[in-house]
Design a protein around this nucleic acid. Structure first.
Lengths: 110, 110
DNA sequence: TTGCTTAATCGTTTTTATACGATGAATATA
DNA sequence: TATATTCATCGTATAAAAACGATTAAGCAA
């Protein structure tokens, strides 16, 4: 009895939740920060910076890519990643509207 | 070999990740939306609205409360919840700065 | 071709999350 | 007092996440 019921919710909530999950691990936030800091495509330098094994970093990169937050291209034997800004902006806007909506509920209760 | 290494990252990344995880499930986003919509404290009406069992809803509420996003008070045999706007604003600001930082990395690569 | 580098994937283990029914504690109400 | 209501907690089961070593595949260099 643990089949997930995420499909039982609306697409808006599902999308936001999926995005939130993508950035719900410090390693993935660190990856995004690195990609932003270097302002360029990065491949395995992330492994040197992060306190994680190569396979684990690759796994996190895959999740970010699946979520659409980063793009990856093959550059010879390496992989080059960068932020997918378009997707990011979409999610940021969705988040902003959620927060705005919640802000309107700033009532005195409890 | 699966001990989590979240402590190996900075507090900023950890905080953001914790918040993101709190809203990484559609049920919890739905709960927050309901709390916002009703603009008042809500107890078990959530169970009627959500496609989940009572114990499951209670569990999600607990997680939101642990993350500090909602407050709960006991009202007789019921429990009354509302959004903790202060905590929410803090996290929203943290998120905004992350997004702003990433936006500056909007370079042409890949 | 052979060997090296790079990174994705596989297989496995441990931990955490999700979900539910059942139980229990507390407050109302009859 | 007895009973019903409300909700948190417990116990449990299953699924997913997190992490690593080992292997594999692909490109490059000698």
């Amino acid at each position: 009895m643990a089949q997930h019921k995420k499909e039982a919710f609306g697409p808006k909530e599902q999308n936001l939740a999926t995005f939130a999950k993508a950035i719900s691990h410090p390693a993935r936030i660190a990856i995004l920060s690195q990609l932003a800091k270097r302002n360029e495509c990065i491949c395995g330098e992330l492994v040197d910076v992060l306190p994680l094994a190569q396979s684990t970093v690759s796994q996190h990169l895959k999740e970010l890519k699946t979520a659409g937050l980063i793009d990856g291209t093959i550059d010879g034997p390496r992989s080059c990643y960068c932020i997918n800004w378009k997707a990011f902006e979409k999610f940021y806007n969705d988040f902003s509207s959620l927060f705005t909506k919640l802000k309107e509920a700033n009532a005195k209760c409890c």
